[in-house]
Each structure stands twice: as structure tokens, then as C-alpha cells.
Write a protein that binds this DNA or RNA. Sequence first.
DNA 1: TGTACATCAGTGAACGCGCGTTCACTGATGTAC
DNA 2: TGTACATCAGTGAACGCGCGTTCACTGATGTAC
Lengths: 206, 206
Amino acid sequence: MGRVSQAQAQENRQRVVATASRMFREKGTAVSVADLMKAAGLTRGGFHKQFVSKVDLIDEAITHAFDEQAVKLEEHPGEHEAARRALIDDYLSVWHRDHAGDGCPVSGFAADLGREHEEAARARHAYIKGVRNRAARLATGADDGMVQLCTMVGALALARATRGNPISEELLQAARTALTESGTGQSEPRQRTESDRGPDVDTVDL
Amino acid sequence: MGRVSQAQAQENRQRVVATASRMFREKGTAVSVADLMKAAGLTRGGFHKQFVSKVDLIDEAITHAFDEQAVKLEEHPGEHEAARRALIDDYLSVWHRDHAGDGCPVSGFAADLGREHEEAARARHAYIKGVRNRAARLATGADDGMVQLCTMVGALALARATRGNPISEELLQAARTALTESGTGQSEPRQRTESDRGPDVDTVDL
DNA sequence: TGTACATCAGTGAACGCGCGTTCACTGATGTAC
DNA sequence: TGTACATCAGTGAACGCGCGTTCACTGATGTAC
């Protein structure tokens, strides 16, 4: 196989990034370059024609995952509360638990970024932006959404770690119920306003 | 260095398990056997005199971490609510964020168990027991504690992944406030009872 | 528009390195008498 | 209680293997004329 057109090369490069973005979320950034390239339909040799190093790709793959998700998050342009409920239900679904590769990068990269202390400066920046973005989308009234995001990330992490045992589904269900039945889910209820709720929420008068 | 007494050998073995338990929580189970043995003051060669394989040690180190923590959890024999608040404050502290090796194994091993799909059957069992145990300790009234545990695990994971940015401390603080100011923190407030609250809790009449 | 040639995306073998594991060896410990 | 000897915890070098990376090579692409 000889030289490939510039357009094809660009497409190949993007496919490697997209593949890495998925595999890193699924199995962690320890996935080998050879496996990655193979999954993208290429051989290992060409890797350094496109990327300076593996760390470089990690940075790019993480950033890519957040960019991609930011687009997805725009898909619920309707009212805030309906979008919030849809986000929560998707997030705490068995499907999301079992498909980390196509799932939320906040959960997918938390472990690797929590242990990586040197590199990945760009990725870290994208990660923090992603956390703030999601928290804002969950916010209801006085609650800034950060605590709800913590609950969701924690529930998903525990559900993934306990897969195969009934407690896995219990955790997802418990978090879903808590986050949707009482409106904000957990912040100081007395300060919460009713203004931005959707009509079909099973609200609780406090 | 020749043979060592049976007592010394047993002590060495225990030191390796304790060291592994700490290092695996801190850096993940990818830590090498050589590094582990070195940290325990031994050389790599002796490893397989004590352990069948590295996977074997991972199993034992995880189980050990939970046993050790179960003992620590008994240290607050007083009233339930005071113990609960102490647990939450310790859990969501900056110290805990920065010392995963001496911290909660539920958070420390969530990432590795979430990705490990074959081995570690014993470890998985210990993990699930640990999750149920901690959830029970957090329970207040109608809330079974699982959702609160999710919030804590998620807050710690996000705080660790965003270390170095102000949002890291914000996440810990937000979760701490939510979990202590409103009693249960997030479950259906209307069903909650007041009976098991501590005297110094800033309770909110709903 | 054709033709000659330089470019370079992708290949596959090889590099040094660190991994988990094995093994011949050491010599103090534990035991048989 | 002493003595002779077998045991085996720990050592350090070596094993095969997979890692990230490098490199000579290929040949279609892109370009200069």
C-alpha cells in the first residue's frame, strides 16, 4: 500500500482519534497503540506519522470525547426540566453502564485523570469545562447541579464496579429516583424555586 | 541473605499485602510487582514464594483493604448521626482526596473493578459487601444510604480528577453541604423521620 | 493536458525497555537423632 | 542439650512477551514543467 490522498489521510487520522476516544473510555488509556490502530483498520507503523506520541493522542482523544458530547447535549433544545430528566434517565441506564465507550467522558476518564499527575494538561482543561457544563445543565433553582452530577457519576461508577450483582441495578434505580422524584434531588430544598420545572415532574410540596 | 524465620516470613508477607493494598488504591492495580516488593523492602524474586500470581495478590490486597476499613468504621460507637457526620466530613476532606492509598477502598478500587471483567471474584465479593456496609452506615430513616454513598464516591472521584483547579474543592464542599444540611441529603424528604438525627445538625423544617 | 519526479501515508520488522514469572543459588532456620 | 542435615524465604539474573517508538521501504499522490 503506497501513499494515500490527503483527504484519506485526514479521514484515517480522525478515525484513530474517534476509536481512541471510545476505547480509552471503555478500557482506560492503557490500551496499546497497536490495538488502537488495528481497531481503526490500520497498522501500528503509521501511528507516529500522525501523532507525536501516545500521550498526545490521549490528550486529543479526551478533548474529542468532550466536543462530541457537547454536541449531543444540544439535542434537547426544549424546556430545561424535560432535558434534565432525559439526561438523568440516559445517564443512569443499564445501557450507559454497559457502554462506557459511547458514554459520558466525565465518568469515562475520571479514573485515568485522577491518577495521571503530570501530563494531559489540555485534557484536564476539557474535563473541567465538561464538568461545569453538565452541572449547569442539571441545575434547578438554587442548586448549582454539582451535587447531582456527583450522585450520577458515583452511581455509574459503583454500578460498573458491581456489574453482575443485583446491587448494580439497585444503585442506578436509587439514584434515578432520588434525582427525579424530589426535584433538585439533594440541595437545600427550602431555597429551591418552582419556576423552571417541567409540567410532568412528580413534584413534592415541601 | 539466607532463610528467614517462619514468623519473619509471615510478617514480610503481610507487609507486602498491606503495601499492595495502599499502592493499588493510590496508583491502580497496574503497579508492577517489582515496585511493590521494593516498597515493602524486598526484591522481586521472592514474590512467587508467597503468592501464586499477581492477580492472586490483587484479590488479597483488595479484601485486606476492606477488612482494615471495616475495623476503622467501628471506631465511632456513639450515636448514629454523629458517626454519620464524621464519616461524611472525613470522606469529603481534601486529605482524603490527596491520600487515596490510605482512603476508602470503594473509591480506590472502583475504576479497576469497573474495567476488570474476568478475574478478582473474591475482591468483587468484598467490594459489594463494602458498598452495602457503608450505605447502611449512612442510612437515615427512609433513605437506605445508597444514594448518599453515590454522591460521596462521585464527589471524591471528580475532586481527584480535577485536582489543581478550584472546582475540586467546590465539589467536595457542595457535596458535604448537601449531605449534612438537609439530613438525608437527597432522598424523598417527606418520608424522612427526625428520630435519628444528632443534636448539632442544622436541621431544616420542611 | 501530459509527463517526470519528488513527496509522504502507510507497512512491517526491529529497537530498547519493563513487565510477570522462573530458576539456580545462598545460608539461616527448623528438625531428626 | 549438641550435632548433622534437610528445608525453604529471599536473592538476583534470566526467560518470553508486549509495550511505545524508530526506520528502511513501498508506491500512489501531488506537483513542477
